[in-house]
């Protein structure tokens, strides 16, 4: 058996913390905090696998820039009507594809469970993050995050960001 890959071990551990903090902000519905994980020129997209694999551009959620990311958070708070639910995000398999002084290209798997208040939790969404991360004075920030979901179809509604 091959020896475990220890290259980037420190960076991967730091990214894992960053990803878990991101997931916690959404699990806890701290949407304003979630918006802070991005740079102000960030591109945030949630896309189906079929669309992504064909190099098409439509995104189920599409935010081009910090303003649209904050708008998504605000619109969910102010206008969206939906059944209350509990969601948990599980992130694993963090990989660093490229690490230059400016940017880190990384990938990770995600799984999201969803539970309505009167029904058991179920697997809601599974897929892969494709990220471009920059180091800022305040720590890591996403310059681009594309969450590609493997689901052919989303169960009912995708309310919260991925």
């Amino acid at each position: 058996m091959a020896a475990p890959d220890r290259s980037n071990a420190e960076l991967r551990a730091a990214l894992r913390d960053f990803y878990e903090d991101y997931a916690a902000s959404l699990d806890d519905l701290r949407l304003e905090d979630w918006a802070e994980f991005f740079t102000d020129d960030a591109l945030y997209r949630v896309m189906g696998r079929e669309t992504y694999d064909q190099d098409l551009t439509h995104s189920t959620i599409y935010c081009d820039g910090g303003a649209m990311i904050r708008d998504r958070a605000a619109a969910l708070r102010r206008t969206a009507v939906y059944e209350p639910r509990l969601m948990r995000r599980f992130v694993s398999g963090v990989r660093v594809l490229e690490d230059s002084d400016d940017e880190i290209q990384a990938e990770a798997n995600f799984m999201i469970s969803e539970a309505m208040y009167d029904r058991p939790a179920r697997l809601f969404l599974a897929g892969q993050y494709k990220d471009c991360i920059v180091r800022t004075e305040a720590g890591f920030r996403f310059k681009a995050r594309t969450a590609v979901y493997d689901n052919y179809s989303i169960p009912i509604t995708l309310i919260l960001p991925v």
């Binding site: 935010c63 619109a75 206008t79 969206a80 939906y82 059944e83 009912i156 509604t157």
Partner: peptide, 23 residues
């Protein structure tokens, strides 16, 4: 692309539809 946010499973003016029908 931007206005695609209006409709779909996460649409600003459509996400309530699937929610209410499920109810």
């Amino acid at each position: 692309m931007k206005q695609g946010n209006l409709v779909g499973p996460s649409g600003y003016v459509s996400l309530e539809d699937s929610e209410v029908l499920a109810q």
